[in-house]
Amino acid sequence: MCNAFLAFALELAMLVFVAWWALALDDALWTRLLIAVAAVGALVVLWGAFASPKARVPLPAAGTVAVKALAFGAGAAALWGLGLSAAAIAFAVLAAANTAVTTYVRRPRPA
């Protein structure tokens, strides 16, 4: 239960970090908003289609982990791009540990 709550919090944080990075760019406001909406929207669609517990396209465990690594990597890269390297590393480590535990817990059990 705690791991599921942490997973959800990390997923939301990932989206916030990507939006924050996009809004901090040195472009016109409409461009920053467009990039933020597009980036967050792409992550939401990617996550919902391939990584969520009720994914529309179920993947083998390795595929799900790869999609999660890509999405969480985007969140960590966004923090890094904002100049928050320690936070980026901490987020990446926490997301990797949480993904490992989630993958272990959800693995199929032999009969």
Rank of each mutant, 00 (worst) to 15 (best):
G83Y: 07
V67H: 08
A7Q: 06
A42E: 00
L79A: 00
A9Q: 12
V57C: 02
A100K: 02
R56S: 13
R106M: 11
V65G: 11
A77K: 01
W30F: 14
E11R: 04
L29K: 13
G75S: 06
A4M: 11
V93K: 10
I89M: 13
A86M: 09
A86E: 12
A77M: 13
D27H: 14
W47A: 01
V18W: 00
A88P: 04
E11G: 09
G63E: 04
P110A: 02
L33Q: 11
A9K: 09
L79E: 01
P53D: 07
M14F: 03
A74K: 02
M1V: 05
A22R: 04
A49P: 00
L25I: 06
A92F: 09
A71Q: 00
G75R: 02
S85T: 14
A19I: 01
G73Q: 01
A111T: 02
Y104E: 07
A38R: 01
A42R: 01
A87K: 05
A61I: 12
R106Q: 07
M14T: 11
W21A: 07
A61P: 10
G63A: 10
T102Q: 08
F8C: 10
M1K: 03
F17V: 00
F72H: 14
A4C: 07
V45N: 06
S52G: 14
M1W: 10
M14A: 08
A51R: 04
A39R: 02
V40E: 01
L59I: 12
N98P: 10
W47C: 04
A24W: 09
A66E: 05
A100C: 07
L79T: 01
F17L: 02
A86R: 14
S52N: 09
L94Q: 10
P60W: 06
A19C: 06
F5E: 14
P60V: 09
P108R: 12
F5A: 15
C2G: 13
A66K: 05
L84H: 12
M1L: 06
S52F: 09
W80E: 02
A74P: 01
A69G: 08
V18E: 05
K54Y: 09
T103D: 08
A90F: 06
T31D: 01
L79G: 01
L59N: 06
A22F: 03
I89V: 15
V105F: 06
G73H: 03
F8T: 15
L33M: 15
L6Q: 11
R106N: 11
A61Y: 10
A90T: 08
A71S: 13
A19L: 05
G83I: 10
V16M: 02
W80I: 05
A87T: 03
L29E: 12
A95C: 11
L23Y: 05
V105Q: 09
A76V: 10
I89Q: 03
A74N: 00
V67A: 11
L82V: 09
V57H: 04
V44Y: 03
